[in-house]
């Protein structure tokens, strides 16, 4: 049994992702994976299988339809505008997409990434153990590229979704620390104490020139103490590297596994989701924490995720005439003449 998810419209930035292409960093293979790992796992958990893949969409939005059968979808991410036909749904929800219906996902009040996880398996080739798309090296997803209108994604082993849409409750989605916590290093000794002070006290603005590979920061320029070239070393998700122009950039999901610029700090794992959900123009500040503090935050988040997501029925806020007629609201009126 299978059904097909048809992409009717796709703005830039839509791709298939799973938890990432792990195990091949040592061969120069980019891990890719979700920009917001927390929202991704929330969507997957709500779809009943933490291990699968999801469609990642960005501010360019997405429109979808089901063909050949109904498809359950779990949606989680930024505060996107989700509509099933004309009905507005919460930005984190599960729904049943029936043939003939149209699901639209548009940029909403906040957030930059949203995940649509099918109740079932995306029938795509496993490339180096992963479905994650890395368009720059042409790996994974649909033919190694971003999604576009007309794409058909076959869903195999579909599982039923709730008949009525429900909201996903996942307390870690949308958590927004006042400051992005970082651990200094591994090359903080390439910067003067003043440059580190500047880094930690400045208000940074997220640049328009940001993508899945790196988020560029605009603000004061950070002076290097001993040049901007280092002998390449490894790079982690959230590494903040500072090339010769002194403008730092945060390396994100599509980072290369190694790099040759000094890294002043790394954003801690627990704060990567919130950082990823920022938009160009948003302001951010950094705060330095210890390994112990970073691990405590990581543990708290891991516990929340291990507790899982809850689904909650929706309270209707919009009432169409058809909906009201169906409810047979006049059925309870009594005839005053008979009393």
């Amino acid at each position: 049994m299978s059904a097909t998810l048809r992409i009717l419209k796709a703005g830039p930035g839509a791709s298939v992702q799973d938890k990432g292409r792990l195990g091949f960093l040592r061969f120069g293979v980019t891990p890719a994976g979700p920009m917001d790992p927390g929202a991704f796992i929330a969507a997957r958990l709500a779809a009943g299988d933490a291990k699968g893949a999801a469609i990642e969409a960005s501010l360019g939005g997405l429109e979808l339809a089901a063909e050949g059968g109904e498809i359950g979808l779990a949606i989680a991410g930024g505060a996107f505008d989700i509509r099933l036909d004309e009905r507005a749904l919460p930005s984190a929800c599960v729904l049943r997409l029936v043939p003939g219906a149209r699901l639209s996902v548009r940029a909403g009040s906040a957030g930059a990434w949203v995940y649509l996880a099918p109740f079932g398996r995306l029938d795509l080739p496993f490339v180096l153990g992963s479905y994650a798309t890395h368009a720059r090296s042409g790996l994974g997803g649909v033919d190694g590229r971003m999604l576009r209108a007309g794409d058909a994604l076959k869903i195999v082993d579909p599982r039923p979704a709730p008949v009525e849409p429900m909201a996903i409750l996942a307390p870690w989605i949308g958590e927004r620390p006042a400051k992005s916590r970082v651990m200094l290093g591994p090359q903080q000794d390439y910067f003067s104490p003043e440059a580190i002070e500047t880094f930690l006290t400045a208000r940074w603005r997220l640049s328009e020139r940001s993508d899945r590979m790196a988020y560029r920061l605009e603000g004061p320029l950070l002076q290097h103490l001993k040049g901007h070239d280092i002998v390449s070393d490894g790079v982690a998700f959230g590494a903040i590297q500072t090339p010769g122009d002194g403008a730092p950039l945060v390396l994100m999901a599509d980072r290369q596994p190694t790099g040759g610029y000094p890294k002043i700090a790394n954003v801690i794992g627990a704060d990567l989701s919130a950082l990823a959900q920022m938009r160009a123009g948003d302001l951010l500040e950094f705060a330095s924490v210890s390994w112990e503090q970073a691990v405590a935050a990581r543990r708290a988040r891991a516990r929340a995720i291990a507790a899982g997501v809850a689904l909650e029925p929706l309270l209707r806020k919009e009432f169409s005439p058809e909906f009201l007629l169906e409810r047979n609201l006049v059925g309870g009126v009594i005839d005053g003449r008979k009393t």
Binding site: M183, P186, V231, W291, A294
Partner: peptide
């Protein structure tokens, strides 16, 4: 050298 709480760079030279 820590690269965040989940990565450690063991550096033998520069």
């Amino acid at each position: 050298l820590d690269a965040g709480e989940a990565a450690l760079s063991v550096e033998f030279g520069d």
